[in-house]
Amino acid sequence: MIIDFISKVFIVLALIFMFFGVYGIFRFRDFYSRVLISSKVETVGFLTIMAGIMLKTGFGYSTLKILFICLMVIVTNPLSTHAVARSALKSGYKISEENNDD
């Protein structure tokens, strides 16, 4: 009972994290800020939601599988973000951030 409640708290917390990640890619007016913030808050949300689901299902083979998925995402997610940021920087894309007196 108490474990069920804790897992619900975890999942709601993850949804709040992910909301900030989605809000961040509309809030910032500069590509490099977006790539810094948004897709990483994503990782925090992912880990939290997986922790909540692992608590909910209890210990078993599926828990270990979800742990394996988490490990995979920890390895591959930074690589894709790095590829996108490096590709933009090497091509020379650079804009100034939007002024407030627009």
């Binding site: 020379g92 804009i95 100034s96 951030e97 627009d102």
Partner: peptide
């Protein structure tokens, strides 16, 4: 194609 502007403050997200 590269695009540069003399007053570079004009190139921002909304402008694009």
């Amino acid at each position: 194609i590269y695009y540069t502007n003399a007053n570079y403050n004009e190139i921002h997200d909304g402008y694009i």
